[in-house]
Each structure stands twice: as C-alpha cells, then as structure tokens.
Design a protein around this nucleic acid. Structure first.
Lengths: 203, 203, 203, 203
DNA sequence: GATGAATGAGAGTTCATTCAT
DNA sequence: CATGAATGAACTCTCATTCAT
C-alpha cells in the first residue's frame, strides 16, 4: 500500500538529489501528457526519468505523491503570481487578471489538467489553494475594501467558484466553450458577487 | 478493461431483472459507504448483491457503469425536483430551493458523494446534468425573464458554479463550513450573477 | 502483505477445485525440493502447477499458507499413524514405533523438512502437533498407565523433546549422525523420562 | 544477496570501531524488540545506530551476520556461565543450574528470542553451541563420571533436548506454561537420561 | 574510514473480465 | 439466463547491497 500521507521520504539537500526529483517530476508530466493517467506507472516514470524505481520511492511515496508534487508546483506558482497582482494593485482589472492567471495555471492537455486538479483535491486538505484560501483572499478582500470580516463561507465561495468552474470547463471539453467568453462570464460572476458582499456589508 | 462506452447491456423489462439491477446498485452503494471506493470491486458487489459476477456483467458494462448508474439515479431525481420547483414557480425563493435541492441530491458520506460526483464527470459527456444544462437552465432563465439568448458560457457558469462549489465543499470536509451559511452565500452568488446578466441584457 | 491468518480463501467443493489445490501443493513441494525455499515464489508455484497466480490466490492466502498446507498434510498423516500404533497397543515397542513415525513424518531433503517444520511453528499456535499434544499424548500416557494427571509441562516435554531433537538433527546435517543410533538414543530418552514420571507418580 | 559466509569484515581493535559495532548490535536488538524481525532492515539498523549503511557493511557481512552476532554474544555468555558451573562442580544441583542458565540465556520478547535462536541455526554449522557440543558436554560427562565414550548421538541428545524444548516453549507462548514446573520437568528429563546412560555403560 | 544516493531484480498481490458449464 | 472458477497482465513497493564521492 502506498504511503499517501508521507509525501517526501528523503528531503533532498544535495544538488544530485534535486536533479533527480526534478527529473522524476518532468518525466511524470511528459508521460501524463503523452499517454494519460492510465498509463502512468511508477516504473514508467522511473524509466523515463532515467533512474531506478527504488530511487523514485526514495523521494516519493508513490504515484499520488508525484502527481501532487506536480500539481503543487503549479499551484504555488499561480498563487505567487496572484499575490503579485494584488500587491501591484491594478484596481479595476485585478479580478480579470486573477481569473486569467487561474485559467492558465495548469499547462497541458485537458486530461493532464484534470489529473493535476484531482491530485490536489485527493490529498484531502493539504491542498495549497484550499488550505490558504483565507489568507489568500484576505489580501484580495483587503484590496477590495471588504475588510477582514469575510465569513469563511464567503471566502470559500470566492476561492472555489472560479477554480471549480475552470475544472468543469476543462472536463467539459466537448462543449467547446469560447475561452474569452468564459473569462468574461467568470469576471462578471466574481464582480457581481463581490459587489453583493459589499452591499451586504454596508447594510 | 472496462467498457465505458456501453453503459447498459440489457435493458430490464421483467421484474426479476429489475430486482437484480436494483440489488446490484444497492450493494454497490452500501459497499461504497462502508469501505470506500478502494474496496469497491465487481466481485464484492456481486457477492453482496447475491448474484454472480457473470450476472453483474449481464446488466452493467463494468465498475464505472455501476457507479454511473448510481449517480444518474440521484442526478435525475434532483433534476426532476428542480423542474417541479421551476414549474411551481415560487418567484422569490426559487434560487434558494434549487440550491438546496442540489445540496441534498447526493446522500451518503462525503467520500461517497465525491465518488458519485466523479463518476458523473468521468463519463465524459454522458453526464445528464451537463448535457442538459442548456435545456435545463433555459427553464430557469425563461422563468427569470432572461429570455433565450443566454450564452452557452453564461449557462455553463450558472449550472456549474453551484455544483462545483458543492463538490468542493464536500471534499473540504475539514473546513467544517456551516451548511446554512454556505447556502446563503451560494444564493447570494447566484442571485448577484443573475442580476448582472439582466443588467447586461437590458443595456 | 500476505494474509497469514486466513489460510483458505475459497473452500473447494467441486472436484475441479480439489484437483487445483492438489496441483498447487504438489508443485510447491517439487519446487521446494528442487530449488529450496529461496526460489519458492507464488508465481513459480502457479506456473509449475499449471494454473494462474490468480487461481493460486483464490485458494491460498500466500506462500506461507501453501507451506502450512503442505506441512499440515504430513503432520496429520503422522498423527493418524501414531494413533493407530497406540490403539494397536504393541506394549513394548510403542515408544520406538512412535519415534520412528515422527522421524519419517516429513519426507524430502533436510532443507525441505526444515522449511515445513518452520511453517508449522510460524503459524503461531495453529500447529496441529502442538495444539493437540495433550489429547495426543494422553492416549500414550493412558497406555503407559500414567493416568490422566499428566501435567501440561510433562506433556509438553514428552511431545516436543522428540520433535525438537528431530528438527535439530535435520538442521545439523553436517554432523552426520547415525540415524539408527539417534533413534536408539531418542527411545532411551523417552523411556527414561516415562519411567521417571511413573516413579514420581507412585511416590 | 547477503554474504552469509563471511561474518565479520573488520575485527575492531580501536575503541571507536568497538563502539560502532556495539551501537549496531544494540540498535538491531532494540528494533527487533520494538518492531519484530519483519521491520528489521539494514537501513533501519544503520539509522538507529547513527551510522551510515556503508559503515554497517564495513563491520558486518549483512543482516544475518548482525543477528548472528547478537545471538553469539548471548550464547557465549551462557556457555561461559555453564562452564563455571561445571568447574565449580556442585554435584547435585548442576543439571538444574545448567537448565536454568540456558532458560535465561536469551533476553527479550519471545519473538526476539526466536529470531536469535533461528539466527543461530541459520548459520548452518557455525553455531557455537552446536559445533562445540561434544567438547562442551564432555566436560559435564566427565564430571558425571560417564567417561569419554559418550556417543555423538547421546551427546547430541544431551545438548539439544534442552535447547529444543526451550525453543518450543518460547514459541508456544500461548500455552502459558509454568516456568518453574517446566524447569522441573526438564531437570527430570535430563537426569533420567543421564542415569539411563550410566546404567547402559555399566552393563 | 565514512557516507548515503542509487540500484533493480523480483516478490507478492489484485481484480476486471471471460466463458465453459 | 446464471454461474463462478479461472485468468494474467500489470502493478506497487522492498531492501540488501554497492561504490563514487
């Protein structure tokens, strides 16, 4: 049974280890893109990465951990970019920029995106986006003059509405939605909600 | 390899067949609740249902088809209930009632709910909720006087925002969100969005 | 991890199943003799038996269970033979016959004998010889006019002295002990002990 | 593959080396007690001992060698104590003292005792107790006035009856034998046998 | 001498699926 | 229609051991 709980077995300190970890993640991403989640096995990943399975298991607890590692890297990058946006504080276009950042956070084919998104939620709480959603959106909320008394539920809705819709859009590829139009609607949704929160607050 | 494409092999007409199908679905649901998705195997389901694996394969194309069957039963029930709500036309509370119906559509533990939700999306387009979202929300849209020129993207957002958020809420069980407060926020989100759509339309 | 606790997964009722079980045990014995315990794998056993691994796992919980099955078959046969000896009641030679029966209970090479003996003890209490030693030796004890108040410890010594020595003799093959002389000494040991017990009892 | 043949690679003379060897043995013993033989790996031992695996392999030929080292330490201590007993020559109680010494030779849980006992026999002839059993019991035999013409088989029985029974008693822990009563029976067994040997000799 | 990252053969095991009965 | 014994490809994961640093 895989050790899902313990993501990293050996925290790499030396450059050789770091390169190995990087090679494993890169190999996993390539295979994911090429053959899909079904064909993604630890043996294949190790082979493609040019290391032995044993080495792979030295750094990752199993397939899920690798997927999670891949997803986290992207999620963190997205979060950093959003943080920059908020700090830079382009008053009006902030919501649109954030939506756009999230929409492009996960590179790769729809199937890959879905796999990574699932890996994030499969961890059950270790999800960076989720775990940090309060801190994260407090920043936005502060910028938007909502103050800090955003309820957990409102924060949750603010965070997950966009991510959830992007997830759904990724899966529902055959609907052939217009990305631009979708972005417009997402922005409309978020701005309408934020306005409603502001109104409720001032009441 | 499971036959994802062909969901039902034999459409039951006789009562004995119906009972068998029912027993299989019920067995699957019980095992899902009791042991989780990991322990859910066709052999176990057949055993619990009191039929042989062979018989199970006479009615279902495989594990995924069973899960999908389970999910569809719920999804259809939810859709029917929502249709009634819309027809009954309780002007003001409609959005809230719909949200509530969706929130309670899937019984069972969070893990079970997630598994069923995933089964729905895993089908890749056969999803009743998704496939019918235009028809479905056109009804709502009509009631709400939005007219029929709801863009596909707006319809998509309208449908999936709620479902996606409920999905996220189900998974993120440790956040311990207040169901009532969450419902309030969902209603706020939807009503704000609908208003925004109305405003945009009239402009 | 193998399911050591649950020896048989499917109790065979039909002749086909019985033949399969028999084939597996026979294959295991042959491989044990030919290549030793190290080379004994479930895959090899299945191949040699002419069945698939899956089938093997339908009947046995794993390698240990197969070994245990093999050992039990022999142990039971030995016990039956000893029971016959006691019932037949050849007054003087009984001890020698019992010793001889135990000495020849496990066919095969020393390594095989050791493996089977170990499998018996590895079960931790399910061992037929051990578990039944009281019942078993009460019969002998009765014959020997010791009565039924044989202490558990005396019964234990009676049972295990011979088995333990045979085990040791099997392992210590390089000592090249003379089987006949060893048998003589074992008989001497047992008869001396029984006499001592009788003396103690009459005192 | 473990190098069973070559037990020690480097015989330590310096104190640092001795400390390392000691740390490894101690670590192995602790892990054996805590987690059982299954969880005992060279990597774990090295980690617990505070050395690298490489260092471990500098001093021990492998896992078996470590286990053997552990067992030998105890076996040698027991032999020395028994030698003292024989030399001290307390005529009547000697057998009882020897039995008691053997019974307490291996500290630790039953599982640990079994593992160490097995390590001793697994060496296949390098076993100190076994290899030296003639020399060893000749001393006792001499003391007991049996002379030097003790047959190898009688010597074997003399040595292994006690050890084998203690092994069996260790494994069969659920029988909950009374240690004192068991000791009594072992003494009875040995004294009866020695007497029988004496009688046979004088005949 | 010490290190510890890397190895990799191969073990055990699962389970969706088939098809002869 | 039902059965369930049989299948077997494929998977995850271990761990004793080596050797370049």
């Amino acid at each position: 049974m895989p050790q899902v709980t313990e993501k990293t077995r050996r925290t790499p300190r030396q450059s050789r280890s770091e390169a190995t970890v990087e090679a494993i993640l890169e190999a996993a991403f390539q295979l994911l893109e090429a053959d899909g989640i079904e064909a993604l096995t630890t043996n294949h990943i190790a082979e493609r990465a040019g290391v032995s399975v044993g080495t792979l298991y030295q750094y990752f607890g199993g397939k899920q951990a690798i997927l999670a590692g891949l997803a986290h890297k992207r999620a963190e990058a997205a979060r950093d970019r959003i943080a920059e946006i908020v700090i830079a504080g382009p008053e009006l276009g902030a919501v649109r920029l954030i939506v756009r950042t999230l929409a492009t956070a996960f590179e790769g084919s729809p199937a890959t995106r879905r796999a990574l998104l699932d890996a994030l939620t499969a961890e059950g709480g270790d999800d960076v986006v989720m775990r940090n959603h309060v801190t994260f959106f407090d920043m936005i909320a502060g910028k938007a003059a909502l103050g800090f008394d955003l309820s957990p539920e409102a924060g949750f809705v603010l965070t997950h509405a966009v991510v959830g819709l992007l997830r759904a859009a990724t899966i529902e590829s055959e609907l052939a939605l217009n990305p631009q139009a979708l972005e417009d609607e997402l922005v409309r949704l978020m701005e309408a909600y934020i306005s409603a929160l502001l109104v409720a607050r001032s009441a």
